[in-house]
Design a binder for these strands. Sequence first.
DNA 1: CCAAAAGTGTTCAGCTTACACCCATGA
DNA 2: TCATGGGTGTAAGCTGAACACTTTTGG
Lengths: 231, 231
Amino acid sequence: MEFIKKYTQAHPHLVAVDCIVFGFDNEDLKILLIKRPIEPIKGQWSLMGGFVQEGESLDEASKRVLYMLTGLTNVYLEQLYTFGDIDRDPVARVISVAYYALIKIKDYDEKIVKNNSAEWFKVSNYPKLIFDHETMVQTAINKLRRKCRTQPIGFELLPEKFTIPQLQSLYEAILMQKLDKRNFRKKILSMNLLDKLSEKDKGNSKKGAYLYKFNKEKYEILTSKGFSFEI
Amino acid sequence: MEFIKKYTQAHPHLVAVDCIVFGFDNEDLKILLIKRPIEPIKGQWSLMGGFVQEGESLDEASKRVLYMLTGLTNVYLEQLYTFGDIDRDPVARVISVAYYALIKIKDYDEKIVKNNSAEWFKVSNYPKLIFDHETMVQTAINKLRRKCRTQPIGFELLPEKFTIPQLQSLYEAILMQKLDKRNFRKKILSMNLLDKLSEKDKGNSKKGAYLYKFNKEKYEILTSKGFSFEI
DNA sequence: CCAAAAGTGTTCAGCTTACACCCATGA
DNA sequence: TCATGGGTGTAAGCTGAACACTTTTGG
């Protein structure tokens, strides 16, 4: 690296990744926060993060951080934005690449989460966070809110099998608005992306609601024919 | 920084910014490319970029790079995505934060552009680029294509005064599709964001077309009342 | 006078929205 | 039997898409 430094006047920087982890508990949209494990400001609420290692890509770093926090792999994880203000971290200059993850809230490993002193908070009411982490969270919520209307990413927050009322309350939680039951059902079913199962989920009512599965193959075929998802 | 390094096992990285500069010549959507001025692979086409300096934020770095290339300040400039694969730059590991700029093509400083051995290329036909710069360009085009439909950013690519046919061909160039003249005019004028001037531009026809200006104040008032731009 | 671009309205189809009642079941 | 959430259809208004002729004027 020395010759590059001399040649280009390049100055190296610490680079971190921070993860905004979303979950849905059939009621509220939530984020997973940890109590900062290291000094300074140890014990304050924060996003889970970590430094990018030598020989590690940004995507790999974000997967590693998410795994350390939740024990999960193979989850929806997407780069959000890179935060690079000089004084964003008062301890040292750190450039942070934020990622957001959508997880099925029942899947995470409780032990690992507990070890990290992590907790779920409603996105409508979470504690004060260190540095610029609140900006990160807001940026992620905005992105999720926009993106869930045009891409079928909401399903990442639900179990594999889910009911239409469940899906509807997910959208209501993300978009922060009530939706019409009949119109919602009509719209989502008219896209032909959901396979109806014969099982019912009686967890939420005596009558029970039919379970559905998102059919990714159908989605990809339709997409390749010019279809676009829209709520 | 030493104590941080030891404490966190953090490894520092070279961080660069690269700029995708868009322009519109009333005909085609274009990008500004340079001939790489340094070894290795000197002379190959590339985006304009530069390393982030000590004490410089990412936004500042991108402004500096854009200024060095075009002589322009105060232009639309937005962070696009951060590219961090290990081997994206075969010379050294460099994490690159890509930005895209929308400039009024008549404004750039020709001398500076010439000094940089820079040239405009159609987005539909540009030369092979170094590293992952073609991915960056495609990502930027996709972003622009999506964003110009829901945010009034197209105006950044036109002179302050422009005609409706000019605006329409801009959208046609970005979206790569013909639009209906009457429907386009109806839609754009119904938003009440344009001020009609009494002057005409006769550059493109004998009859001449009325000039308009985008009224940012009106846009902000409408936006605060829940209006949203949509082409 | 003619070529070339600017400017102008209407109709139809499809989509979005609003809205109210019956069903199934466990307690 | 009753309380609770699940499931269903239709009408009205609005929006998007298709479409052709007149106007202006420089050469």
